[in-house]
Design a protein around this nucleic acid. Structure first.
Lengths: 348, 348
DNA sequence: GCTCTGTCTGGGATCGATCCCATAGACCGC
DNA sequence: GCGGTCTATGGGATCGATCCCAGACAGAGC
């Protein structure tokens, strides 16, 4: 059980050792000590080893703050997501964290809870900390503009506010949505509702567009009253879904635009004793773990949040390397995980 | 739609403005500019307003790096969890993030994936960044010792490695485990298995102890072969659970020591077509959202990870304020969310 | 008029690490 | 013997913000 932690010999010092103390103890100048520790510039091998040994024995850890101030370049990135309690954002953060670690970067994480004000605060904190770059699931157009003006590289993930102004990484929302909707149409459904949170961001807009495109391609007339805005949290959405499913002429299938909405629809269906898939078919965007736990499993568009996070961070590092390269939007494809939640519509 | 982001007038400057530029533009010295912006020390009101206006118009954001170097105190805390993809840890991070934001602190987040080596790396990064304090779900005893020796306040959450050496915040694992186990015993179960990941950390040890205590209190003999070590990931655990449930004399109830293991048991039961609760009763530690989505819902010990995170951070700030106060272990109580996954054992 | 107090401002040192530059010695070739 | 190259080291400036301290000035009190 070897740990990489260098524990200083003896009792802890009252003050943390600085490079000056390392240098004095080793009998060299600060410059030489710095060269010995960073490995940049000439140092006699014997001196290098002696300095490193002294540093180890003192438990010296260089002050990243001071280093960054001098070098005008930090080794941390800022990450801003909307809700860590949502497995999608948590997975995103997990993927980013993994890759950042591999590149010896640390991650500042903030959760804006969907609020533009909090997002703005976090952005300013990132600027103050002079992070090397920021990855954000934006809730306003301002943030990317602001960070860009501060000359901080930004990558928008999951949704895109600054089209063409900064890099972005997303899944192909439109074609994935079209694909699952087509499956429902092929099964014979005609009254397919879409439960959605918002329609102005790229996520909502494109998923809605894909859904409509499927209707158009199938030559099926489209009923606007079946597109339901259901808000942000599970409870509010559950109530909306409940209303939807209790209509005199209810939908025979529901496409939920994300995992929170899918949960809401699922709960509403349970409340109403609707059996899935016999009385109601359900498909969802976002494949999260409960969808394969329930009976029947929920057919879902599986976008891999970890992969999305990884793609975002590699895009960010490319941007840091070449700030002037043309702006890029990366579209990952999403697969459909087919499970048991769909069936032909009930005969009337 | 007002955003708090101060966007500099005109085109972005080639270099980020410093306090020196703010001072020169406002026609004052750096000292005065600093006083005007921080609000510490004498400044004529007219001057203060002029300086602030100039700072705003230049889009000046003070360099936290430089400030912290000078003040020898940072406004960030380090948070180290085991797996962001696990809703428990994600919730913990969410709670901490919320509270940190309220106190104007930023959060450095790292995910060690359960590895002591990665944990050690992250600890060193936190020291290098001179964070004000660290909250950790530890995977080794070294980390708290190391950070303490570096004079960085630490709070251990969820489990405790450095008993009495540093603050800790946990739920009362033992009595919660005892409580759910007693419920199963009261229903008439005798062959109650416990599926667990490890038994050396406080979490595993105490939950196991609670389980045993319930047997002792009920005067029911205890069968060691029903305590199953099932490893860390869902798949490995599912296989172990499958074996357990396929034994010639299978348990009539299972107590899963955490949400991952509960998921594994649930999946194994599904594979074996065991109906819950008629053929098998299931209870779990950790109440995560899928447990109320499946049919029947899973009875679970509900520890609120967000509350746990909040308690940890307030403990951390108290520690930062009074470094010499006696070490404290905070025990939060956990409630049992009773759902439909338990019933009397099947008649033989 | 002189001191004293309170208001207000600027100069310079400081935090810790890095890095440019000067310098010194060794060694080589001509 | 001398210039040139290479190795190795230390001095001092630097990054950006803060803060101690000295000092200027105004107004009050004697």
């Amino acid at each position: 059980m070897k740990s990489g932690l260098t524990v200083p010999d003896g009792f802890p010092p009252a003050r943390r050792p600085t490079i000056r103390e390392v240098a004095e103890t080793a009998g060299v100048s600060r410059s030489t000590a710095s060269r010995a520790l960073t490995g940049r510039g000439y140092v006699a091998p014997a001196v290098r080893d002696r300095v490193r040994e002294v540093a180890r024995s003192l438990g010296y850890v260089p002050d990243a703050t001071a280093r960054h101030l001098r070098q005008q370049a930090s080794q941390s990135i800022g990450v801003l997501v909307s809700d860590l309690n949502n497995p999608f954002y948590a997975g995103l953060a997990a993927g980013i964290s993994q890759q950042a670690r591999k590149r010896q970067y640390t991650m500042m994480l903030a959760d804006d809870g969907g609020s533009p004000e909090v997002e703005a605060e976090a952005a300013e904190a990132f600027v103050a900390l002079r992070v090397a770059g920021v990855i954000v699931t934006p809730v306003s157009a301002q943030i990317s503009t602001y960070l860009a003006r501060q000359r901080i590289p930004v990558v928008e993930v999951d949704r895109q506010f600054s089209l063409g102004a900064c890099d972005a990484v997303m899944v192909d929302n439109s074609s994935a949505a079209r694909q699952v909707t087509s499956q429902l149409l092929d099964l014979g459904h005609r009254r397919i509702a879409m439960v959605i949170d918002e329609m102005h961001w790229t996520t909502g807009r494109d998923r809605l567009a894909g859904y409509r495109a499927a209707f158009a391609a199938a030559g099926v007339p489209f009923d606007d009253s079946l597109v339901v805005s259901a808000g942000w949290d599970v409870d509010a959405a559950r109530i909306e879904a409940h209303k939807l499913l209790s209509r005199p002429e209810p939908p025979t299938a529901v496409f939920a635009a994300n995992n929170v909405l899918a949960e809401a629809v699922w709960r509403a269906a349970t409340e109403l004793n609707l059996t899935i898939p016999d009385q109601l078919s359900l498909v969802s965007f976002d494949d999260v773990s409960w969808m394969s736990l329930v009976q029947p499993g929920v057919t879902a568009v599986a976008q891999d949040p970890v992969a999305l996070g990884e793609a975002a961070i590699s895009q960010l590092f490319e941007r840091i390397q070449s700030p002037l390269a043309p702006v890029r939007t990366v579209l990952l494809s999403a697969t459909v995980a087919s499970r048991g939640s769909t069936a032909p519509p009930p005969a009337r």
